[in-house]
Amino acid sequence: MPTACSTRSPARRSAEPIAAAALAVLTAAAAMPARADGLVAYRIVDAAIPASLTGQPGDATRGRAIVANRQIGLCVLCHSGPFPELRFHSDLAPDLTGIGNRMSEGELRLRVVDASHANPQTIMPSYYRVDGLTRVTPALRGKPLLDAGQIEDVVAYLKTLKE
C-alpha cells in the first residue's frame, strides 16, 4: 500500500504547506503542525501511524491507568485484558492480552486514533477525531476522546502487552 495521507490530515483540509508537513514527518522527533480542528496532524503509512503524535514516546504507566479507567479510556467496557483488579468481564471486542505481539506500535496508534480506518463498521470509537460525528453532547463538541499525549501513553502501554 502506498503512503497514504489520511483523509483527516491537513494536506486536504488546511492551507498548511505539504512541504512543511513532509518535513515534520522526516524530522520524526517534531510533532506535526496543528490542524484547523486543533488536532495534531498525522500521516498513515501502510495501515499504521508510525510517528508519535507528540514527537515523544508515551508513558506506559499512565497509559495503563487510562486503559483500565471506565470513564476515561473506556477500553475495558468492551475489551478484557491483563487487568486482575477489574472484577468484570467484557467481550464486545478482542482481548488485549498479547496485543503488543500482534500489532506494531504504528498499527496500535492507528487503531486507537481511528479504528474506522481499517473497518468503517467497527463499534470502536475513533479516539482522536472530532469530525463526522452526530449530536455530540455540547460540552464535548470539538474534543477528541483522548488528547495526543494520552494517545501516546495508551500506545506505549499497549506495546508492553506481550505474551
Binding site: 473506556l74 470509537p125 452526530t134
Partner: peptide, 12 residues
Amino acid sequence: QRQGQINLSCAQ
C-alpha cells in the same frame, strides 16, 4: 444512526 462522541447507534 451513529451518534455522540462514542459514535454508536442503538442497533450496533
